[in-house]
């Protein structure tokens, strides 16, 4: 992680999860697990966010919200689906109001399984997201250089 160029900020949105993953995401950021040591800060503003953490499946009502949040984030961006509901729909897959996992609305890069996903697994997902983010940032920098 030594060559990180800047600290990625994290946006968390609860799709339609049961809260279990949400509180584990928050627990990641608190002193015991401390994801902030990777330079990550939890922000409420999508315009400043680089990593989008989504928990829970997608339904008719929150689909536009998820899409809007994703579109408001600046490039480059990475999406992490936390919990089995965000990956596939999980235990609620057969419910009438669940369309599917987060990937039915937005492109997901990293899937973190678990019900509820453990903080260790979430941190692993975030670390992978930081690496992917850096790769994308460097790529887009090169493209800018080419054009310039």
């Amino acid at each position: 992680m030594a060559n990180i160029t800047r600290s990625p900020w994290l946006l968390h949105y609860d799709g339609s999860s049961c809260n279990g993953c949400d509180i584990e995401v928050l627990a990641c950021l608190t002193p015991v697990y401390d994801a902030e040591r990777f330079g990550i800060i939890n922000t409420g503003d999508p315009m400043q966010a680089d990593i989008f953490l989504i928990t829970g499946g997608v339904n008719e009502q929150n689909m536009p919200v998820v899409k809007q949040l994703y579109e408001q984030m600046p490039e480059p961006k990475v999406v992490v689906a936390v919990g089995v509901c965000a990956c596939t729909g999980g235990v609620f897959k057969d419910c009438y109001n669940i369309i599917g996992g987060a990937d039915v609305a937005i492109p997901v890069d990293i899937y973190v399984p678990g019900c509820a996903a453990r903080p260790q697994a979430i941190i692993d997902g975030i670390v992978k997201a930081v690496a992917l983010f850096q790769e994308r940032a460097q790529k887009s920098e090169k493209e800018v250089d080419k054009v310039g």
Binding site: D14, G15, S16, S17, G56, G57, N59, Q61, N62, V65, F92, D94, C95, Y96, N97, I98
Partner: peptide, 10 residues
């Protein structure tokens, strides 16, 4: 309605 899943229908 943002988190409605329809759990009772299961």
């Amino acid at each position: 309605g943002f988190v409605h899943r329809g759990l009772e229908s299961l």
